[in-house]
């Protein structure tokens, strides 16, 4: 039996925003019955270009239904630009986490949202670019690369948990491994290249990383982060907004900011609050 959080169970047993929005501005459909899950997301904007209404229909297991319900709750009130930044990780976090084997449910939510936004913008639904790697579930190399990079996946099982690729006959396992190896090799060499940085370069990169990767996540919870100084490997920051008063701020700092900076800038960085 799966260990679902109470929030996941609640969104499964009492799903929010079920149905189809009439005269929707955006419609996104992903998955199929053959795959075991499918989601149709529809939304409508108000006069201020914010999502006024979002509804879903889902065929799938408890976590697929809960992820869809969570997604609608998360995007109502957002502008398209804001909604566009919602990641599968955030959907899972909204539910208090998902069993790892069920992460593909959150990826399905993100994919449906992306399609609905593309539909709103009148962009042709994104072609399935790339080459099909997993024939059982029709997953391409580009789709696999994306989840590997976005979620720091390291094994074939993880790729299967996130996009199902490799979960059928297993013939594509070698190809998936090659994709993972190529990408992790790439990341390593990128990091190595970044190693002999001047101080200015390092500060720039830290600033950039905080702006791109860290801030959006903190701002979602009403928090903010400012870079004060970089002293060797010490990164001095201030926290503003709810994060500063939140008892979990140490954990937020240590786990999240430091993790991101170590991953993307240099692995000896230490984050300190001033």
């Amino acid at each position: 039996m799966w260990e679902y959080t109470d929030k996941t169970k609640d969104h499964f047993l009492n799903p929010r925003n079920v149905g189809v929005v009439e005269n929707a501005d955006g419609v996104g459909e992903v998955g199929s019955m053959a795959c075991g899950d499918a989601l149709k997301l529809t939304f409508k904007l108000d006069e201020n270009q914010r999502i006024k209404e979002a509804k879903f229909q889902t065929f799938g297991c408890a976590s697929a239904i809960a992820s869809s319900s969570a997604l609608t709750e998360m995007i109502i009130g957002l502008t398209i630009e804001e909604a566009e930044k919602v990641t599968n990780e955030q959907i899972a976090q909204f539910l208090g986490g998902l069993p790892k084997e069920k992460m593909h449910c959150s990826v399905m939510g993100r994919d449906a949202l992306e399609k609905a936004i593309a539909c709103y913008r009148g962009e042709a639904a994104k072609k399935i670019d790339g080459e099909v790697v997993c024939e059982c579930f029709g997953i391409t190399d580009l789709e696999i690369k994306r989840v590997v990079l976005e979620n720091n996946l390291a094994t074939i099982e993880e790729v299967t948990d996130y996009v199902k690729a490799g979960g059928g006959c297993g013939k594509c396992h070698e190809k998936i491994q090659t994709i993972i190896d190529d990408l992790t090799g790439l990341q390593k060499s990128e990091k190595k290249k970044a190693a002999p940085m001047t101080n200015i370069q390092k500060i720039k990169l830290i600033e950039e990383t905080l702006r791109r990767e860290v801030k959006p996540a903190l701002e979602k919870d009403g928090g903010n982060i400012e870079l004060v100084d970089v002293d060797g490997s010490r990164v001095l920051v201030t926290l503003r907004g709810t994060c500063a008063t939140c008892s979990k701020s140490q954990i937020t700092l240590k786990n999240y900011v430091e993790f991101k900076l170590r991953e993307l800038v240099a692995d000896d960085l230490v984050v300190e609050e001033v």
Binding site: L13, G36, C61, A62
Partner: peptide
């Protein structure tokens, strides 16, 4: 409909069965 969802809803009533579903 999907089997796991059925099982979990039956579970709310204490009904135990199983499913051929993948999930």
């Amino acid at each position: 409909v999907e089997g796991e969802a059925i099982l979990l809803m039956m579970n709310e009533f204490g009904i135990c069965a199983s499913s051929g579903s993948a999930c």
